[in-house]
Design a protein around this nucleic acid. Structure first.
Length: 332
DNA sequence: CATCGATGTTGAG
DNA sequence: TCAACCTCGATGG
């Protein structure tokens, strides 16, 4: 589910709540028992997010690599120290609810503003949140500690006060520092990790050499990190770029423009927890756009609906097993 | 209650 | 190109 912005947000949660603390680890589901045993008792020392992957380091030189894939999610419970640079307290991260907002992430209140204090109501909310200066009460009365296991939990990390449950990941494994370096080395630039000017050069030079369509290149994590199906569709629309054009045939300025737009969009995504791609709308239109999932994007998930710019029906195609949405007129 | 689909990736053929 | 993997909310009967 999550594209790059969610993973960076999750990493911040780990930075706030686990780094510097001793951790007990277990695999209630049974599929990561050995790994959990190796982690257990160690202290988390740092966390890194690159693209859609998160790397959590424990002493001594032990790394946990997690990739949430399409269904993975972290559930945080207990006392959650919220990163003040992030707009809300979080329960579940990674998964999304039917409105397309990350559960537990900022919710538009009736005034249409991001509410710092509102906590989304995750289905399994067990979150007892401590905001920067104030402590909220327990989310639920009669809350147990540690929280009961619900469903298939691949990995549970438990500090004295905070619980993080991982379910449904595509990847959850231990790595050596060399393996982490090798994994990261294969990934394309991430605007939140790499120097953005350097990233632009890397991205542009690769794209401009490839016969592969720009639509596929944007989804290729070895070309650029963190973009998924939603951001892909939206970036291409915002650039008015036909997804089928070979990378090498996309004008250099357009390629660079897409990178710069990605730099901007992922920053907004990390700040707000939402995949805001209509950020240039006026406040009224923004509120309307955020009100429902189907109104939040230019083209994503809008097959058959009129293009917001020209009215032409948005097209959906199946490309490499993923849905590709675009406007055949604006992106001719 | 059964089935579908999803913001993803890997590996076999 | 396609199946497999993993989970669960939405959808339909």
């Amino acid at each position: 589910m999550p594209e790059g912005h969610s993973v960076h947000r999750i990493a911040r949660q780990f930075d706030r709540n686990f780094v510097g603390r001793a951790v007990a680890a277990s695999s209630p589901q049974g599929r990561f028992v050995e790994g959990a045993a190796v982690i257990s008792g160690r202290t988390a020392t740092q966390v890194r997010a690159v693209g859609k992957q998160m790397f959590l380091e424990f002493d001594d030189d032990l790394w946990l690599r997690v990739h949430l894939g399409m269904y993975g999610a972290w559930d945080f419970a207990g006392e959650i120290v919220v990163d003040p640079t992030i707009a809300s307290a979080n329960g579940r991260m990674g998964q999304t609810n039917q409105r397309g907002t990350d559960i537990g992430e900022p919710i538009l209140d009736s005034a249409g503003e991001n509410s710092l204090t509102s906590i989304g109501a995750p289905r399994r909310a067990r979150v007892h949140v401590r905001m920067s200066e104030q402590t909220t009460g327990l989310a639920d009365e009669g809350e147990e500690w540690p929280p009961p296991i619900v469903g298939q939990v691949r990995l549970r990390l438990l500090s004295e006060t905070t619980c993080a449950d991982l379910r449904g990941p595509t990847a959850c494994e231990l790595q050596t520092p060399d393996e982490v370096a090798a994994t990261i080395a294969k990934l394309g630039p991430d605007p939140l990790v790499d120097d953005v000017a350097e990233g632009e050069e890397r991205f542009a030079s690769v794209v401009r050499r490839k016969p592969t369509s720009i639509g596929l290149l944007l989804m290729d994590q070895n070309v650029v990190s963190g973009i998924g199906n939603v951001y892909r569709a939206e970036l291409l629309f915002r650039a008015r770029q036909n997804p089928h054009t070979p990378g090498r045939d996309v004008p250099e300025e357009v390629v660079r423009g897409i990178w710069r737009d990605w730099v901007r969009l992922i920053a907004i995504g990390v700040e707000t927890g939402q995949m805001m791609t209509m950020d240039d709308l006026d406040p009224d239109a923004y509120r309307k756009a955020m009100a429902s999932r189907d109104d939040r994007h230019w083209v994503y998930h809008r097959a058959g609906l009129p293009c917001r710019v020209c009215g032409t029906a948005i097209v959906v195609e199946e490309v490499a097993t993923r849905k590709l949405y675009w406007c055949p007129s604006c992106q001719a």
